[in-house]
């Protein structure tokens, strides 16, 4: 199975571990991700704050490249990229807006654009839970996880089509298939405050702290995420968050692909585990306790 892939700029920088683990997990599931050529920034935060047509033009260029290569489905890991690509795609259905963007790009864009979806949805929709279960080499039994989607993945509902916008369940389904114990996490779509990380640091600390503190209270071993910005915010700024809530905890914040990779028995280097600022030790320790069954040559 091959998917056209839009990595987005974080994947090549701050969230290299997401990129690595995504590729490794996909490979393990028989999926090849093919990067589209000559892609550019999706126009996230800075550009869309300046102008919608400018931001859409950036996305439209990427979509246009894919469309002209005959691609009908494009996948991306980053929820912000996904949101931008999808909303640009929607806006471009308005002829007046399309004309404006075409003008910015100096060339007429393709009439139709590929459908854009997240890597998570692509895996869930194309790989059966049984196949995922079959691929498990390392038992995650007894590992307590909470899934955190962040604010963008499921909202707005009409645009993202990600199930119940307040209570998405896709990541839970995937992680349960691995054998982990997935806890109900009421703050799974609450804002982590990442966008205010620079202008209003206390607000960010309070929001992130609330999420981490709840995960801690519920007895989670890790908060599993799907968004580079959330990950950075919850992981890197954990000390700030702790000062805001007054609680003491060390909560690992891995990507869902890293957890899947662990379950599949992939080497830690291939999953970029070293990049996590709060180490995944509690999880790894439990895995160790579970006396992992390894199969020849695969680990």
């Amino acid at each position: 199975m091959r998917f056209a892939y839009y990595p987005g700029c974080s994947a090549h920088g701050s969230s290299l571990d997401y990129e690595l683990s995504t590729e490794a997990v996909c490979e393990a599931l028989g999926i090849t991700l093919e990067e589209i050529p000559d892609w550019n920034c999706c126009g996230s935060t800075p550009a869309h704050a300046v102008g919608t047509s400018l931001s859409a033009a950036l996305c439209a260029r990427n979509l246009d490249i894919a469309a002209k290569k005959g691609i009908s489905l494009l996948v991306t890991s980053c929820p912000s990229c996904l949101s931008n690509l999808r909303s640009a795609s929607k806006r471009m259905k308005d002829p007046a807006f399309r004309a404006e963007v075409d003008d910015l790009l100096d060339a007429p864009t393709n009439r139709t654009f590929p459908l854009v979806t997240s890597v998570m949805q692509a895996i869930a929709e194309h790989i059966s839970p049984d196949l995922i279960k079959d691929r498990v080499r390392v038992s995650l039994t007894g590992i307590r996880l909470v899934c955190y989607y962040g604010c963008l993945m499921s909202r707005p509902h009409d645009l993202m089509q990600f199930g119940d916008p307040e209570n998405p369940m896709l990541m839970e389904t995937l992680l349960s298939a691995l054998g982990a114990e997935v806890l109900d996490f009421p703050l799974k779509t609450a804002c982590c405050g990442a966008s205010f990380g620079i202008p209003k640091r206390p607000l960010t600390a309070r929001n992130s702290g609330r999420i981490l503190e709840l995960a801690h209270s519920l007895g989670a071993d890790a908060v599993v995420v799907a968004c580079p910005l959330c990950q950075m915010n919850l992981d890197l700024r954990q000390a700030q968050a702790q000062r805001a809530t007054g609680e003491r905890f060390r909560m690992p914040v891995p990507y869902f692909t890293q957890i899947m990779g662990l379950a599949f028995g992939l080497p830690h280097e291939a999953l970029g585990l070293k990049k996590l600022s709060i180490p995944l030790d509690p999880v790894l320790a439990k895995i160790e306790e579970n006396a992992p069954v390894r199969f020849g040559g695969e680990a």
């Binding site: 009421p186 609450a190 709840l214 801690h216 209270s217």
Partner: peptide
């Protein structure tokens, strides 16, 4: 806006 168990 939201009601949820606080874990305590």
């Amino acid at each position: 806006s939201q009601i949820y168990p606080d874990g305590h």
